[in-house]
Simulated assay, not measured.
Amino acid sequence: MHNSDSPSPTEMPENSAQNASSGQDLDALKARIAELEANNKELRDTVLREKAELENQRRRLHRDLEQARRFANEKLLNDLLPVYDGLERGLAVEGGDVNTVREGMNLTLKELLRIAGNNGLVQVDPVDQPLDPERHHAVSMVEAPGKAPGTVVTVLQKGYVLNDRLLRPALVAVAKDD
């Protein structure tokens, strides 16, 4: 009787080679797993750092926007200070004649209009122009011989445009049909 469980002398080297090969494969797989786990940890750390950096950038942007909102009018207000000073000096003068006061007010108004213009504000003064409902608000119709119907005859209150966007329409009186 021959025992089939025990390897024959000719089979033994083949089994040892397979076992050695399997051991090497197992070691190689373990090394590969360790390498992939290290790579995974490195990628996870990178993602966490990037996420933290994005959060920091978001906070900085929010802070910068808040600062910009708070101080957006700083230049304009700084430009308006001389107008404010001129008005105060004009009010401090006692007993001046009407022409001098009027001249001071005219100079102050010109300075104010210059500053407004430098900041993108333009007056809408549509006298003798056709009514534009996008920029004018007709409050009355008047007899105006020699004027075409629908033409602006009088501006009761000037309108203003800020950087090509209507800020306030002009209040106008319009020529009516004869």
Rank of each mutant, 00 (worst) to 15 (best):
Q157I: 02
L81H: 12
L171H: 10
Y160Q: 01
P82N: 09
N73E: 09
V174T: 08
R135I: 03
V124P: 03
R70M: 08
R168S: 08
G104R: 08
R69P: 02
A116F: 04
R63W: 03
N15S: 12
S4V: 14
S21L: 13
Y84G: 00
V93T: 10
A175R: 00
A17D: 11
E103D: 13
Q57K: 15
R135V: 06
A28M: 07
K30Y: 07
N118W: 00
L80A: 05
L26M: 07
P130L: 06
L166I: 11
M141P: 03
P13A: 11
V101M: 14
Q129D: 06
N119R: 08
L29M: 13
N99W: 02
D79Y: 04
L65C: 11
A148Q: 13
A17T: 08
P9Y: 08
L121D: 01
P7L: 15
F71K: 14
P82S: 08
V155D: 08
N15P: 01
R114P: 01
V142N: 00
Q57D: 13
D27R: 12
T151H: 04
N73M: 15
F71L: 05
R114M: 13
A144Y: 03
N118M: 03
S8E: 12
R49G: 06
I115E: 02
K147S: 07
V83W: 05
R63N: 12
A170D: 01
G96N: 08
S140D: 02
Q18I: 11
D164W: 05
E37H: 12
H62N: 11
N39R: 15
Q18V: 09
V174Y: 02
E66R: 13
G23R: 07
E37F: 05
D64T: 09
L48H: 11
R102D: 04
E143F: 00
V122D: 00
E37Q: 09
E88H: 07
R165S: 05
F71W: 04
L80T: 01
L81R: 15
L87Q: 11
P126G: 10
M105Y: 14
E11V: 13
Y84D: 06
N39C: 05
S22H: 05
V142W: 00
V98R: 14
P7N: 15
R58L: 10
M141C: 03
N3I: 13
